[in-house]
C-alpha cells in the first residue's frame, strides 16, 4: 500500500450532509472486476447532466477546484453500502484526504485500506473551512506524523487518528502480510476447544 506521511493540496467543498456511497459511485459502475479506473465515475449523477455533459454547477467541475486533492465534507460522509469502490473512486480521482465532522464506519475503515486519510474535525472548524474553501484555491497541508492540518495563513487544527491505523498509513504496511505473522496463533485458535460447537460450522455437506 502507498505510504501517507504528509500531503498538501487544494480543498474542494462538498456542501451536503449524509453523502452516501451510492452517490459517490453509482451502482452501474460496480460491475468492473478491477480496482482501478473508477475515478471517471466519481459522483457521476451530480457531476454529469443526463446528456453526459459536465454539470457546471457541481463543485468538482468548477475551474477554481481543478486539481483538488482534499475533499471537505459534511457529517456522516460515506454512509450506506459497504462498496470499497467508493474510496477507490475518490482515490483514483486524486483525493488523498477527506475532512468531515463524522464518517460512516465501513467507509472510514475502507479509506485506510487505500492510502487515503479521513480526518474528523469538530463541526465549527469544518464550517470555518467551508467558508475558506468557498473562495477557491484554498490550500491545506496535512501532516499525519504530527496529526496537524495547517493552512497558508498558519492556522492549525489538531486531529486524532487511531494509532494503529496511523502507523500502517505512515509505513504503507500490507495488512495480510502482517496478519500472517500470527499464523501460528490462528492455528492454535482453530484447534483450541474455545468453541466446542465450531466443528459443526461448515458450509459444505448440506443434506438437500
Amino acid at each position: 500500500m502507498e505510504v501517507f506521511v504528509r500531503h498538501q493540496g487544494i480543498v474542494a467543498p462538498l456542501d451536503r450532509p449524509n453523502v452516501d456511497t451510492d452517490a459517490i459511485i453509482p451502482k452501474q459502475f460496480l460491475k468492473r472486476v478491477e480496482r482501478s479506473g473508477f475515478g471517471q465515475f466519481l459522483f457521476y449523477d451530480w457531476r454529469y447532466l443526463p446528456n453526459g455533459e459536465p454539470d457546471p454547477s457541481f463543485v468538482l467541475n468548477q475551474p477554481r477546484y481543478a486539481g483538488a486533492s482534499i475533499l471537505l465534507a459534511r457529517n456522516n460522509f460515506g454512509c450506506g453500502s459497504s462498496r470499497e469502490h467508493a474510496p477507490w473512486a475518490l482515490a483514483d480521482y486524486g483525493f488523498k484526504v477527506i475532512i468531515a465532522p463524522s464518517f460512516a464506519d465501513i467507509f472510514h475503515n475502507n479509506c485506510f485500506k487505500n492510502g487515503m486519510l479521513p480526518i474528523v474535525l469538530p463541526e465549527k472548524d469544518v464550517e470555518h473551512l467551508f467558508q475558506q474553501a468557498g473562495r477557491g484555491q484554498y490550500r491545506l497541508e496535512v501532516d499525519l506524523e504530527a496529526q496537524v492540518v495547517r493552512d497558508d495563513e498558519g492556522t492549525t487544527w489538531r486531529f486524532q487518528v487511531d494509532p494503529y491505523r496511523r502507523e500502517r498509513l505512515l509505513k504503507g504496511l500490507d495488512d495480510i502480510g502482517a496478519t500472517l505473522l500470527h499464523a501460528d496463533r490462528i492455528t492454535v485458535y482453530e484447534q483450541s476447544a474455545k468453541k466446542p460447537y465450531q466443528d459443526v460450522y461448515r458450509t459444505t455437506g448440506s443434506v438437500t
Binding site: S82, E84, I106, N109, N110, K113, D175, T179, L180, I186
Partner: peptide, 22 residues
C-alpha cells in the same frame, strides 16, 4: 457486519479480521 473488498481479501487469506471493539 459488512466489510469492504480489502477486508474480504484479508478474511479469505487469514479467516480473521483486525477489529476495534465497538
Amino acid at each position: 457486519f459488512g466489510i469492504g473488498t480489502s477486508e474480504l481479501e484479508h478474511v479469505l487469506a487469514t479467516q480473521c479480521l483486525w477489529q476495534t471493539k465497538p
